[in-house]
């Protein structure tokens, strides 16, 4: 499936450049139970500055999709370009920040030291590390927690730290794998609003994997609906709420209509038949 992005779908007209181009990518795992087709002939183009959500039931390959783009997994066939480079080149060029399901903070490092870790690895100077750590801690509203250790923070705060860590080296692309999946609904709403604000401020391209239909509709400019066995794209829905949307838009008929279309897409994938 090939989607030509509608120019009006993008808030920022200067960002029509293609950030991620996935062309006929397939990935088959060899497991003890035989071959599992995690991705089957997936094609997708994502323009710079977009917020794209991947939604689908467990095992539909949405996480695998993200891992392939991040060069954490190699596709069996197909082509992939990230910011005009191959996935590996993009990884080596540190073109993206990755946020996992869990915060995966390093427990022996303070919050500040956790934020500095990627910067240390990338060879930033000591003073730059301090400035950037401070700036991104401020961005996720955690100033004052710099000296704390991860276990002293709540789950939601830890996940915010991990988002700040992914942003700290200013990658053009943010890959997020169910970052709020383990959090309760109230914290999740709060973080969704914050993430949207962050996206508005930083103008990054965001690829966001989720289980939650409201979350996907609320956050995205584009929703990719996937179905399992084999993992494939069954629908791509444009979703053009204004950038400064608030949680209230979830009550509007437009929001309901898109959510309904996502739900229909998921059902059409026969995802829950087995």
């Amino acid at each position: 499936m090939n989607i030509v992005t509608d120019a009006t779908a993008i808030a920022n007209p200067s960002s029509r450049r293609i950030a991620v181009d996935v062309a006929e990518v397939s990935l088959t795992f060899d497991t003890a139970d035989g071959k599992v087709e995690a991705l089957s002939d997936v094609s997708l183009q994502i323009a710079a500055g977009e917020f794209v959500s991947f939604i689908g039931p467990s095992g539909c390959g949405k996480t695998t999709m993200l891992r392939v783009i991040a060069d954490l997994q190699q596709p069996t066939s197909g082509h992939l370009s990230v910011n005009g480079m191959t996935a590996e080149q993009a990884r080596l060029a540190r073109a993206y920040g990755y946020v996992f399901q869990a915060p995966a903070l390093f427990p022996w490092r303070t919050i500040e030291a956790n934020l500095k870790l990627p910067l240390q690895i990338m060879g930033y100077s000591e003073s730059d590390q301090t400035i950037l750590a401070k700036r991104y801690l401020e961005l996720v509203n955690l100033t004052g927690f710099a000296r704390k250790f991860p276990w002293q923070l709540s789950g939601g705060m830890q996940q915010r730290v991990s988002i700040a860590r992914a942003l700290s080296f200013d990658p053009a692309l943010l890959l997020m794998d169910e970052p709020f999946g383990a959090l309760d609904e109230i914290v999740r709403d709060h973080l969704n609003a914050q993430l949207l604000e962050l996206w508005g401020k930083t103008n990054k391209t965001v690829l966001f994997v989720t289980h939650s239909i409201p979350e996907a509709v609320f956050l995205s400019t584009k929703i990719v609906v996937m179905s399992p066995r084999p993992g494939r794209i069954i629908d791509i829905i444009d979703c053009n709420f204004p950038r400064d949307r608030t949680l209230e838009i979830r009550e509007t008929p437009e929001f309901m209509a898109i959510a309904q279309r996502v739900r229909t897409g998921l059902r059409a994938g026969h995802s829950y038949d087995e």
Partner: peptide, 10 residues
Amino acid sequence: MQLDLMRTWS
């Protein structure tokens, strides 16, 4: 996950 993180930072 921690090893993957290190990999994403190459």
